[in-house]
């Protein structure tokens, strides 16, 4: 159950990244590239936090 709730973060992060980067730039290529980078960084940060919490709760 916990895992399924955490899975929601992936498409949500993708949507937020796209909208945020669309509001920063005008060029489609730049929007998509920035969104992919932002998505990757955010997911990496969330994964690190998840692993840290997992380790602390052992």
């Amino acid at each position: 159950m916990q895992l399924s709730a955490a899975i929601y973060a992936i498409p949500l992060t993708a949507g937020i990244s796209l909208v945020y980067c669309a509001s920063r730039f005008e060029m489609p290529n730049k929007i998509v590239r920035s969104a992919v980078i932002m998505f990757a960084k955010t997911i990496a940060a969330l994964a690190a936090l998840y692993l840290l919490l997992l380790y602390l709760s052992r």
């Binding site: 909208v19 945020y20 669309a22 509001s23 920063r24 730039f25 005008e26 060029m27 290529n29 730049k30 929007i31």
Partner: peptide, 16 residues
């Protein structure tokens, strides 16, 4: 963010 973009344009510039 979309409303702001519609009124003022992109926050950082065109992108190039």
């Amino acid at each position: 963010l979309a409303i702001w973009d519609a009124a003022e344009g992109p926050a950082y510039g065109y992108g190039d």
